[in-house]
Design a protein around this nucleic acid. Structure first.
Lengths: 137, 137
DNA sequence: GACGAAATGTAGCACAGGCTACACTTGCAC
DNA sequence: GTGCAAGTGTAGCCTGTGCTACATTTCGTC
């Protein structure tokens, strides 16, 4: 079986990028936490995402490996410049999607939930269209 | 998370449901394939999703366990009534999201890709708003 | 009806992302 | 400066989703 001969497979992009989504959610949360409390600890993320601190710990290992965060044993979680960049663009996209859903007429509560899921799948072109729609309100 | 309040765990929903997304993608593809070719074989799905036939095979095992498909060794893949229902609602949602993106002014190519990712995160309320927007065009 | 190609199945590996249970550090109260 | 609670780290387990390599079955062709 040769699975990858097929070229412009749109499914290929849809699949696979769960790791990126997770990274985006985490760096966004880390940036928030640092902004709100001055520092981000693993417990904060564990509480926010409703996962165990062990899961957070290992996720931090991957994010560190991928160059988004830095940590030292028993120390707080910091963002690298790349992490800050990712947090910023992710956050901005998130906000636009959220505003867009509100502008569409969706309730605040639903917009909160849906924007979380949708933001990771919005291409620059779609984001621009959403932004234009919000601006035209 | 600027656009939101700290509800206990909107993240919980966002997370975790990758299995459901995969199931939706698969049953949709299976329904398509059956409609197009009269039957769906594992190779068809492997080619479509650009994965190996082994991955398809095991995914079918899970979908069978979860009651969405039936298969017999070396036989074609069939949908259960639950699988057909899921395929139908998934397909419908997918189409609405796609039409909506087009109506928003997004190009066909980008709408194809983005609707694939977005469809799984659209709640009924948001879907209704999208549908209304398309209808109001 | 035998053959070979295509399809499917099986074994075994890897990694992500989830968990519990338990060990160890840190830091604050006292 | 000790002790205890909170926070982290480590060990080890599970499932899902991907793979390669190899075995087996089906099926059309002859």
């Amino acid at each position: 079986m040769t699975p990858t001969k097929k070229q412009p497979n749109r499914h290929t992009r849809v699949r696979s990028d769960h790791a990126r989504e997770l990274a985006e959610d985490y760096v966004e949360a880390i940036a928030d936490q640092i902004a709100a409390a001055g520092a981000c600890r693993a417990v904060d993320l564990a509480a926010l995402f409703s996962v165990s601190h062990v899961t957070v710990n290992r996720t931090m290992g991957r994010l560190q490996r991928d160059g988004f965060v830095t940590t030292e044993p028993y120390g707080p979680i910091e963002l690298t410049p790349a992490g800050r960049r990712l947090a910023k663009t992710s956050r901005r996209r998130h906000e636009i999607v959220h505003q867009f859903l509100i502008a569409l007429g969706v309730s605040e509560a639903v917009a909160d939930v849906d924007s979380e899921g949708i933001e990771h799948h919005v291409s620059p072109e779609t984001l621009a269209a959403m932004k234009a729609f919000v601006a035209a309100q």
